[in-house]
């Protein structure tokens, strides 16, 4: 059985757990705990180690989705979770400009771990005060070749689209390697 892994990362409360929950065939194995810090009490629980989802492709192939904890004090987990990843998705809450700087930091940290393809998911695009994905591209200083995709983490179709776009980018990278041989 071959197992491949994708990492879903992003700042605290960006929607990573919901993203995995929308597409995983199993209930997300989540290690959430009640939030103690008043500054972070925008939701009742947060991911303290990781979320884990699965998509079975066949008897011999399975895709695992790992969600990283968003709070800084757990960022020692990021390096561990990134090992061997096929690619990664950076989730950004488009309605919370105060988290954009943190999103940039997360993105740059994961970029430094491995030269694997990634996409940025501009989450909560169904909300009235969501920032446009192309505005986020400027804020996050994304290179033109990095895809930034509109997303609603609770909507399976947009989640599928994000994962597919990431897979297309991975495919392009593989083709480049093949050509270079």
């Amino acid at each position: 059985m071959q197992a491949v892994k994708m990492v879903i990362t992003g700042p605290f409360s960006a929607g990573k757990t919901q993203f995995i929950g929308s597409i995983s065939e199993i209930d997300v194995v989540s290690t959430e705990r009640k939030i103690s810090s008043s500054a972070e009490k925008v939701k009742d629980a947060t991911t303290v180690a990781m979320d884990f989802g699965r998509i079975t492709v066949g008897d011999d192939l399975v895709l695992y989705l790992f969600g990283t904890p968003g709070q800084r004090r757990f960022d020692f987990m990021w390096d561990i979770l990134s090992q061997g990843m096929l690619g990664f998705v950076v989730m950004v809450d488009s309605t919370k400009p105060e988290t954009f700087r943190e999103a940039k930091r997360v993105l740059e940290t994961f970029e430094s771990y491995a030269a694997t393809p990634y996409v940025v998911a501009a989450n909560k695009q169904d909300m009235e005060d969501a920032w446009e994905p192309e505005d986020l591209r400027i804020i996050l200083r994304l290179r033109p070749e990095v895809k930034i995709l509109p997303c609603v983490a609770t909507d399976k179709e947009t989640v599928k689209n994000v994962l597919l776009e990431l897979l297309y980018s991975i495919l392009e990278e593989i083709d480049k390697v093949e050509k270079a041989r």
């Binding site: 491949v4 492709v57 066949g58 192939l61 096929l86 694997t116």
Partner: peptide, 12 residues
């Protein structure tokens, strides 16, 4: 990760 093209196509 050494993933083959065919694996990615299957995932897609």
């Amino acid at each position: 990760p050494a993933v083959k093209r065919s694996v990615v196509v299957r995932l897609i």
